[in-house]
């Protein structure tokens, strides 16, 4: 989401720290996300009193308590709906929604897709740790098939959601992915989410070192990161690999990995365009499980998959109010009480 800049009194990252003791497990990926948010937000030029963090329930949803802004820690899955009502009535506020893979995609999945299609101008940060952290380790709607957890001793039989594909399917106007272990990228994505006018959906891979440690290891660890991740930048070719020697080429609608050192031409590579909805759909499907897939699997994309400009809900709502006021004038309470037809008894 994008918010207009008044001339706010400046504040620092430190001033965004609250007096509450942070209760996440040591080593939890949530710490990094909090840190990056506290670093980026003072740079956005938004008056601090206009910033609101709204969350549901989960480890991730503790977030607002640690942010010295306005905040609400609500109920499981409903932060999306709460933020919708807040934005509808207070469009000038900068609203940040913090949710988990269980909170935002399971119990609150319905609200998430509706928020995105309506396109309220706010930011949704989905901390995806592929597990239910707060309830101590059950599988979540993003856990891979076969996942062994407390509630699935024989492995989960659920097919997982692909959150990016889901949000594109819901006609989100900004869809991006980042990770806790790449502070720079995460900061950049938080800024991009804020810059976008409309509902910005940012999926953040977050390590739960207690119940699902290493879920994203292949994407975050030095040894494998370059080969397994694809950092998308609009206008740039899709390249990856230790020395960016690998690239993605489209063969019809089928993406294939080519090696620039083995005769492939850089000119044939797919140039990323984050305003291309069809290609965003293909990128969303770069979703191979690197541990289960064969050698020639596709890397996992990070960055902005897609964005578009579409009128935001709260402004359309206000336009209707203005329209009716222009037609009928400001509401006259006595006329409303009187109604259309009256009679007098004397």
């Amino acid at each position: 989401m994008e918010t207009t800049t008044a001339s706010p009194d400046k504040f620092t990252a430190k001033e965004l720290v609250t007096d509450q003791e942070v209760r996440w497990c040591p080593g939890c990926g949530d710490y990094s996300i909090l840190k990056q948010a506290q670093t980026v937000i003072p740079e956005l030029g938004i008056p601090r009193e206009n910033i609101v963090f709204v969350s549901g329930i989960g480890c991730s949803s503790r977030f607002p308590y640690y942010m010295e802004t306005f905040g609400m820690h609500s109920i499981h899955g409903r932060a999306t709906a709460i933020a919708s009502g807040l934005k509808a009535t207070r469009p000038e506020l900068s609203i940040w929604l913090v949710t988990g893979d269980g909170d935002g995609l399971s119990i609150g999945g319905n609200h998430t897709i509706h928020l995105l299609r309506r396109n309220f101008n706010l930011n949704v940060l989905l901390f995806n740790n592929e597990i239910y952290g707060l309830t101590k380790g059950q599988y979540s709607p993003t856990s891979e098939e076969g996942k062994v957890t407390k509630s699935t001793p024989m492995g989960s039989v659920d097919h997982p959601f692909n959150p990016i594909a889901l949000c594109l399917g819901a006609d989100a106007t900004f869809v991006a992915r980042s990770m806790d272990r790449d502070p720079k990228h995460l900061q950049a994505m938080l800024k991009r989410a804020n810059d976008h006018k409309g509902a910005s959906f940012l999926e953040i891979y977050q390590n739960c070192n207690v119940f699902n440690d290493g879920a994203f290891e292949v994407f975050t660890e030095k040894a494998s990161k370059k080969k397994e991740t694809l950092f998308m930048e609009s206008g740039q070719p899709l390249v990856f690999g230790d020395n960016n020697e690998l690239g993605i080429k489209l063969d019809g609608f089928t993406p294939i990995v080519v090696n620039l050192n083995e005769g492939a031409s850089a000119n044939d590579l797919w140039i990323h365009d984050d305003r291309d909805r069809v290609k965003a759909g293909i990128l969303a499907r770069f979703f191979d499980n690197p541990r289960a897939a064969g050698e020639h699997h596709l890397p996992r994309p990070f960055g902005v998959f897609y964005q578009e400009d579409r009128p935001v809900y709260e402004e359309k709502m206000i336009a209707q109010l203005d329209n009716m006021k222009a037609k009928r004038g400001e509401g006259d309470l006595d006329a409303l009480l009187r109604g259309r037809e009256t009679w007098t008894i004397s």
Binding site: M72, I82, L86, A88, T89, N110, H111, H114
Partner: peptide, 16 residues
């Protein structure tokens, strides 16, 4: 989208 969202949106509006 449902009654839960109905009341929750109202809670958000009230907070505002």
């Amino acid at each position: 989208e449902d009654e839960i969202a109905g009341i929750c949106s109202a809670i958000g509006a009230s907070f505002g």
